Simulated assay, not measured.
Amino acid sequence: MEGHKIKTKSKFKVRHQKHKLFRANEPLLSVLMWGVNFTIHELDNVNIPVMLLPEHFKANVKIRIDNQNFNKEVMPSHFKVKEYCPLVFRAFREYWKVHDGSFRDSLTEPPIPMNETTKSSLPLYQSCDRRFVLKCITKEDVEQIHNILPEYHRYIVETQGDTLLPHYYALYRLTVDDKENYILVMRNVLSTKYKIHYKYDVKGSTVDRRATDKEKLNPCPTLKDIDFVESKRTIDLGPEQKKIFMERLKRDVKFLVSQHKMDYSLLIGIHDLDQGGVERDLTVSGGDMNTSDLSAYESSDDSDNPTQIGEDCSFDEPFMLRNSDRSTRRELYSLGLIDILTYYGMKKKSAHVAKTKLSGSDADGISTVRPEIYARRFLDFIDKQFI
Rank of each mutant, 00 (worst) to 15 (best):
A296W: 13
T108S: 03
Y194A: 07
R93A: 02
Q160K: 05
L32T: 03
M186H: 10
Q17H: 13
L52C: 01
K214G: 09
T283V: 12
R130S: 01
S300I: 02
H78R: 15
D288Y: 00
S10E: 14
R377P: 06
L53A: 13
I40K: 14
Y374H: 08
M320N: 13
H56V: 04
T118H: 01
R377C: 11
K135L: 06
S324D: 08
D362M: 00
L335A: 12
D129C: 03
M114S: 05
K357R: 09
Q17M: 14
P113T: 00
R15I: 14
D272K: 07
M320Q: 12
V36E: 10
K242E: 02
V353D: 08
M1V: 14
I137S: 00
H260Q: 15
D304L: 07
K349Y: 10
T283C: 15
I183R: 12
V284C: 12
H99A: 05
Y374G: 02
T356D: 02
D44V: 11
G287V: 00
F386G: 02
D272R: 04
D364C: 00
S102W: 07
F79S: 09
N290I: 06
A363P: 03
H16R: 15
R330V: 10
V207E: 04
G277C: 04
L337A: 08
T163E: 06
V36K: 09
L53I: 10
G365R: 00
Y374I: 03
G3W: 02
T159I: 10
T212S: 15
S127L: 01
G287Q: 02
F79T: 11
I340D: 07
T356P: 06
T283Q: 14
K232D: 04
G286M: 03
V142H: 09
L184E: 11
V369W: 00
D325V: 08
K139N: 13
F315I: 03
T307S: 06
E26L: 03
D281R: 08
L32R: 03
R248K: 08
Y152P: 03
R248N: 04
E55Y: 14
A24C: 07
K261Q: 15
N218H: 12
A296N: 14
H78P: 07
I48H: 07
P111G: 04
A296K: 13
H41P: 05
G204R: 08
L335S: 13
G365P: 04
D364I: 00
I40C: 15
L379V: 02
C313G: 03
L217F: 06
F228D: 01
L124M: 09
I196D: 08
Q259S: 05
D316E: 14
N181Q: 11
E151C: 11
G336T: 05
K119Q: 14
E83L: 15
L149T: 10
T138G: 06
E2P: 13
T8P: 09
Y152G: 02
S295Q: 14
N45C: 12
K7P: 00
N67E: 15
E317C: 01
I6K: 01
V257S: 07
A351G: 06
T328N: 13
Y169P: 01
D288S: 03
M186T: 10
V229N: 07
D383A: 12
L32K: 02
E83M: 14
S265F: 13
S121C: 06
Y374P: 03
H271E: 04
I148T: 12
N147W: 12
K349V: 11
P318A: 06
F378K: 01
I268K: 13
A296F: 10
L321I: 05
V353T: 08
R330M: 13
E73I: 10
K357T: 08
